[in-house]
Amino acid sequence: MNAVTIALLSVVCVVALLLLGLVIYSWVKKRQAERAVPPRGAFLPVSCGKLHYLTIGSGPDVLMIHGLGGQLGNFDTGLADDLARDHRVTIIDRPGAGYSTRRPPCPTNVGAQAELIEEIIGALKLDRPLVVGHSLGGAIALAVALRGRAKIRGLALLAPLTLPVEEYSEAFAGLAIRSDALRRFVGWTFAVPTMVRRPEPVQELIFGPEPIPDDYLVKGGGLLSLRPHHFIETSRDFVEADTDLPAMARQYANLRVPVRILYGTEDRILDHDYHGGSLVARHPQIGLELVEGAGHMLPVTRPEESAAFIRRASKALS
């Protein structure tokens, strides 16, 4: 064995050991996150896997759908408890998110996720719920309304994705991976260490200009993002997020249920003028309210304003 071969083998061994170290580190962080934020709801078998959900309160049904990279904790830092005083509130981990599973090859486009929401509404026996969607959850809620197959009272959307986007925020740059094999490789090697070492740039875009609440990491479920599974499934959602929006945008005039939107004027993820103002200008039957100085994470940073907005929408439909 010559010197060149020995050198190459040495390099291969070093790279393999480094990758193994990253896998072990990611697994340890995953276990730590799951111990800190265990499942807090119940589980229900659905067609694509197992749904994790939580239902609290009594009254008219409200179903809440979180956004890209989120989980049900996004609604559980005050918003769900507030609404539960006079509503029956169901918050879910979307299939593939949080503690809900999503078996391949279940599709991840908005229309397919809307079909799963319809299944969930039936399985949980929700009675004409008001559907609340945040960010990507807003697009999914709109798809449910456009499909017209589930009996819902209306939509109350928080910073929703509503129209096709040519260029997404740089916060999502690392998610644009279309190969499942590469996505899993990155998820189990580089994704978690990167999030641990440099969380600030992404956090400032997602939450800014508002601070991250102290209870977000645990009660808000933020620590669950430190899991390979989270990166893999969020990437799957991201690459298909825009697929159905052009066709959906052409159908908004056909919406048969009331739609109301709440946006922060300082949202750094989605442009409130485009996804809110432009939409309402084209379809004035859709209501729009703005929260001055608020960013994208309204359910977490502005739970009182979000609850008041949802309650107004619910009362208008009573």
Rank of each mutant, 00 (worst) to 15 (best):
M1Q: 04
A7S: 13
V11D: 12
C13Q: 10
G21R: 15
V23K: 05
K30Y: 09
V37T: 08
P38W: 00
L44H: 14
V46Q: 04
G49C: 03
T55N: 08
S58W: 00
D61G: 01
V62D: 01
D76C: 14
G78N: 12
L79Q: 07
L83F: 08
G96V: 10
G98W: 01
S100N: 02
C106K: 03
P107S: 07
T108C: 09
G111W: 06
G111Q: 11
L130M: 05
L130Y: 02
L130T: 01
V131C: 03
H134A: 01
S135K: 03
G138K: 03
A139N: 03
A145N: 01
A145W: 02
R149M: 04
A156V: 05
L157D: 05
E170N: 15
A171M: 14
R178K: 14
S179A: 13
A181F: 12
R184T: 12
W188R: 12
T189Y: 05
F190H: 06
E204S: 10
I206C: 02
I206W: 04
P211Q: 02
D214R: 15
L217K: 02
G222F: 07
R227A: 13
E233I: 05
F238N: 08
V239L: 11
D244M: 06
P246Q: 12
V259A: 13
T265E: 09
R268W: 03
D273Q: 13
Y274S: 05
G277H: 02
V280K: 12
E289N: 08
E289A: 12
V291G: 07
V291N: 08
E292F: 08
V300N: 13
V300L: 11
